[in-house]
């Protein structure tokens, strides 16, 4: 607050237009920073209030710890799952994290599966999307199957994938791939179909070849849509990861969340859920960042 008073222009200063513009810009960024700070503050207060209510409810024992463990016990479960610890107080035997893996290793194992499944979707999805948008017969044939696949619940067909590809990582990656590629394909189709005709004609009339219109007009115009599709696909992969890891899902954060649930270890389940949520948000922010770098023309062209 004191800062704003010191940087405000002194009264009666000469009205230099360039200086005024710079001043306005500075004030603008300052205002934006203040807004950001205020937003952060509101969020932090909301989080503290939420944790306080959680703590109060559990410490008053209004709800049994099995259904809602205290924040402290969730934190304890989180710490234990990331360290070597004795299996019980007073016992010498040490174990590693949970199920012989640290929690972060469970997370990385899931990220690897998502990386491979979504990675293949990022390669295959746009290719199929371009093919479907460019050649009518392909779209006519494939579109119903794409919509069919899109509507299927992952839990419904994981059993078939296990019979086909075994209980190992292959079936899990297939599931994540099948969940991730339809949104990317559909986003690509929408992107290609959304390219305005006059732009292509404009490029053609300026002497561009057919191929050049694709590489210089269609592809750049489609890229923002493709990246949006990828963001949706990654979100979808997260929601699918527990289904993928129901069988033989250790190591895996989804598998651990499910397993701890069946063993009534609720604090660990909640710790897993929080970790999944935070990881998903961070990954989404990362893709947003990549989008800013790769397609700075988004919304401007």
């Amino acid at each position: 607050m004191t800062e704003s008073t010191t940087t405000s222009p002194p009264a009666g200063a000469a009205p230099d237009p360039e200086l005024g513009a710079r001043e306005a810009q500075r004030r603008d960024t300052q205002e934006r920073r203040r807004q950001l700070l205020r937003r952060m503050l509101v969020r932090i207060i909301a989080l503290v209030v939420f944790l306080g209510v959680w703590w109060l409810v559990t410490s008053l024992q209004l709800i049994k710890p099995l259904y809602l463990p205290s924040p402290a016990s969730v934190w304890h479960a989180f710490v234990l799952s990331n360290t070597d610890h004795p299996i019980a107080p007073g016992v010498d035997r040490m174990v590693k994290g949970e199920q012989n893996y640290y929690l972060w290793e469970h997370l990385i194992a899931s990220l690897q599966r998502i990386g491979v499944g979504v990675g293949w979707a990022i390669i295959f999805g746009p290719i199929l999307g371009f093919a479907m948008a460019s050649f009518k017969p392909i779209a006519t044939i494939i579109e119903p199957y794409l919509n069919f696949l899109r509507a299927l619940p992952p839990l419904g067909y994981i059993g078939i994938l296990i019979v086909w590809f075994g209980i190992g990582d292959t079936s899990k990656m297939w599931l994540l791939f099948l969940a991730a590629f339809p949104p990317i394909t559909i986003a690509t189709i929408n992107g290609v179909r959304g390219v305005r005709e006059e732009r292509i004609n404009g490029a053609l009339s300026l002497g561009a070849s057919r191929f050049q219109t694709i590489t210089h007009v269609v592809l750049p115009s489609t890229l923002p849509e493709v990246i949006s599709g990828i963001r949706i696909a990654v979100g979808f992969a997260w929601t699918t990861v527990v289904a993928a890891e129901l069988n033989n899902g250790i190591p895996g954060i989804g598998g651990l969340a499910y397993l701890s649930g069946t063993e009534l270890k609720t604090p660990l389940t909640i710790a897993c859920i929080i970790v999944i949520g935070i990881a998903a948000i961070l990954l989404d922010l990362a893709i947003k960042g990549v989008e800013k770098v790769l397609v700075p023309w988004r919304g401007k062209a």
Binding site: H106, I108, Q112, V116, G119, I122, D169, T215, L223, I250
Partner: peptide, 28 residues
Amino acid sequence: NAHRLTVRVLAAAVAVVGATALSGCVES
């Protein structure tokens, strides 16, 4: 640059797939 960017996106995707598939930093 757009064309090169598209190529770069694809290359990055291939790299990510390859790296995670090959490295396998957390073995089952």
